[in-house]
Amino acid sequence: MTRDMIRLFKVKEKQRELAENANGASHVKKQSAGELRLHKDISELNLPKSCNISFPNGKDELMNFEVTIRPDEGFYSGGTFSFTFQVAPIYPHEAPKVKCKTKVYHPNIDLEGNVCLNILREDWKPVLNINTVIYGLYHLFTEPNYEDPLNHDAAAVLRDNPKMFESNVRRAMAGGYVGQTLFPRCI
């Protein structure tokens, strides 16, 4: 790596001046390393039947997509919950941003759709992938956890009165009120 490049620059500058009269090259979108890695994650997805992925912006815009989860066991069995994923160009250095689009009565998901899942924040590592995140989300529905609450009330009910929690979940999923909050039907 020891050479003088100025002569090279000189040659290139001359070439450039000549080329400027010719038509400029047309330029297409660049592909980031994050996008490549995401393509790999997507093409290797191995999802259970209860999880579904879709690409609202078509096949060429994979950095934003949606995942639908239909739990087939547990409190949330029969419900349908949608999540949006936003993936940054420096993925997997940074975790995907995930929000729950379906308003849900859940101890680990607040009413704005924020999700408390460790691998989305403090425990994210670049070796993890989209598949692991989706499995993590699925797990939240089969094993809601009152120790990491984002919806304080739901967590307290789950801890103190699981029977009542179950009936609250059912009421919410059927499109009813729990306390002051109206939930949309998602069954």
Binding site: V28, K29, K30, Q31, E35, L36, H39, I42, S43, E44, L45, N46, L47, I53, S54, F55, G58, K59, D60, L62
Partner: peptide, 22 residues
Amino acid sequence: ASITHRGKSLYMQAPPVLEEMT
């Protein structure tokens, strides 16, 4: 193999929804 070109999916083996589109 799945093939991409400058961010565009030319062919994706999976998931089925993308396979179908490509």
